Simulated scan of single mutants.
Amino acid sequence: MDLKSLKDIPATFSIVKKSLYICLGLSLCISIGSMIWSYSLCTAYLNTTYIVTNEGKAIMLNSANKYKVDQFRKPEIVNHIKEFHKLFFEIDQFDYEKKVNKSLHLIGNSGKDLYLTLKAKRYYSTIVSNNLEHELHIDSIHVNHKTYPYRGELFGEVIIKRTDQKLENTQKLHSYFELKNVARTEDNPHGLLIEDYIVSGL
Rank of each mutant, 00 (worst) to 15 (best):
M1L: 01
L6W: 07
K7V: 09
D8W: 05
D8N: 08
F13R: 05
S14R: 07
S14K: 05
S14Y: 04
I15S: 05
K18Q: 03
C23S: 08
G25H: 03
L26H: 00
L26V: 08
S27G: 07
S27N: 05
G33F: 06
G33T: 03
M35F: 08
I36K: 01
L41S: 01
C42M: 02
C42G: 00
N47E: 00
N47V: 00
I51N: 00
S63W: 00
K66E: 10
Y67S: 00
Q71M: 06
N79D: 07
K82N: 09
E83P: 10
E83N: 08
E83I: 06
F88C: 08
F88N: 08
F88D: 03
I91E: 12
D92P: 13
D95N: 14
Y96E: 08
E97L: 12
K98D: 15
V100L: 08
K102F: 07
S103Q: 03
L104K: 04
H105G: 05
K112I: 10
D113C: 06
L114G: 10
K119N: 14
K119G: 12
R122G: 10
Y123V: 15
Y124I: 09
T126Q: 13
I127A: 15
S129A: 15
S129V: 13
N130H: 15
N131T: 11
E133Y: 11
H134V: 13
H137E: 12
H137D: 11
I138D: 13
V143F: 09
T147G: 09
G152I: 12
L154D: 08
V158H: 13
I159S: 15
K161M: 14
N169M: 15
T170F: 12
K172S: 13
H174A: 08
Y176P: 04
F177M: 07
E178Q: 08
K180P: 10
V182D: 01
T185V: 05
T185H: 02
E186Q: 01
P189Q: 02
L193S: 04
D196V: 06
S200R: 02
G201W: 05
